[in-house]
Amino acid sequence: MKNNKTKLTPEEHRLFGDLMPEELEDVLHSGFNRRHFVKLMGLATAGLLASYALGAEQLFARAVEMEDIPNLIPEAIENGVTVNFKVNSTPRNVLVDSRMTLLDTLRERIGLTGSKKGCDHGQCGACTVIVDGHRVLSCLTLAATCQGKSVITIEGLAKDNELNPMQAAFLKHDGFQCGFCTPGQICSAVALMKEAKEGQASFATKKLSTDPKSIILSEEEIAERMSGNICRCGAYPNIVAAIKEAQTGKNVPQNWLFTD
């Protein structure tokens, strides 16, 4: 992940120069790190990024600079399990304690802190990741059971500087306030798109097997299908609007407006 010290695009340069001038040198010198990202989130929440849309989108798409975390020595673990699996298409080989959840492995061992630990009991959805194409709760998944599997986290959704359409829709619709539940919301919503495309019904679907299979999601459907992701800030109307836009590909009006 050392290649993140790439040059800033002109749009990003303008954004940092205007809004975070004191960080500009730092970013140019040592790359875009977590602290910059957190500050950027703050600016996004304050609505200050709207006029820098392109630069901000590119920055959100960037993987944050992370150090590789060395494996523990086997003697340090009583019940060690070696797991080979893929995280965001990168093969990983980690020695974990048998008790370690996938969430803790991602955050504490692989350095991907995008997936969040909310309740750690499968009630909030903040830890949602996509394993072999299915959205699951990484807090209730033991890393040891992930041998040979492929895990996609929020860090793996964007392609280079291009956001996943769901990420772009969340930005456009302000589908968050504090942002803590957002990585889980977005991973969940990305998987939801596939489920709807495959015609998988929800409890709110009138007909169980549909023909043609693909389901266009109403607001009620989106609410039902996203019920495993809790947002304590209550950004639900904006989350629903974002998912609607991403699913239909059509422009959905924002629920909010700037006022003078």
Partner: peptide
């Protein structure tokens, strides 16, 4: 449950 839990 939720979609995530039903998947697991």
């Amino acid at each position: 449950a939720s979609a995530q839990i039903r998947n697991m």
